[in-house]
Computed example of a mutant assay.
Amino acid sequence: MEYGGITPIGLPPDWPILIDTNVIGQGRVIICSGIRASKLLATTDVLASLPNSEVLPILKPE
């Protein structure tokens, strides 16, 4: 992948993908495709189903 164009799809299994519940609530998101000049439109269930992803509750500052 090009520097600055890292996509959550296809990352090594030891790289965690942390997803805020606000992101999942959007339904669709635009993510990097792996090169800086291109983007992908994905449903949030695709992100949540990636093997190294974890959906986290909304964190509020103390």
Rank of each mutant, 00 (worst) to 15 (best):
L18K: 06
D14Y: 02
D45T: 03
V55W: 07
W15C: 08
S38Q: 13
V29P: 08
I30Y: 12
V46W: 13
I19R: 00
V23A: 04
S33P: 03
I24R: 10
V23Y: 10
P13G: 14
C32G: 04
V46H: 14
S53D: 05
N22H: 02
G27C: 08
L50N: 11
A37K: 12
I24P: 14
N22K: 06
P16R: 00
I6P: 12
R28N: 07
A37G: 06
A42F: 07
P16A: 04
T7Q: 06
E2H: 02
L56Y: 00
S53L: 01
V29Y: 13
E54Q: 05
P16I: 05
A42D: 06
T21L: 14
I35T: 13
I17G: 00
G5F: 00
G10Y: 03
L56Q: 03
I9E: 11
N22D: 15
S53V: 01
A37L: 12
I58F: 09
L50A: 14
I35L: 14
I31C: 11
I31D: 09
L59G: 04
D20F: 06
T7F: 03
L47I: 04
S38E: 12
R28T: 13
I58W: 07
N52P: 05
I19F: 04
I58V: 09
R28G: 00
L50Q: 08
E54W: 15
P57G: 00
P51K: 06
P57M: 01
A37M: 14
G25I: 03
A37C: 11
T43E: 11
R36M: 08
I6T: 11
A48T: 01
Y3W: 13
I6L: 07
T43I: 04
N52H: 03
I19G: 00
V55A: 10
L18I: 13
R28D: 10
Q26A: 05
A48K: 11
N22R: 09
L18G: 05
P12V: 07
D45Q: 00
I35E: 15
I17A: 02
P61N: 09
N52F: 00
L18Q: 06
I24W: 09
L56V: 10
I35Y: 14
S33W: 00
A37P: 08
I30R: 15
R36Q: 09
I35Q: 15
C32M: 13
V23S: 07
I19E: 03
L40Y: 13
N22S: 13
N22C: 11
G10K: 07
I19Y: 01
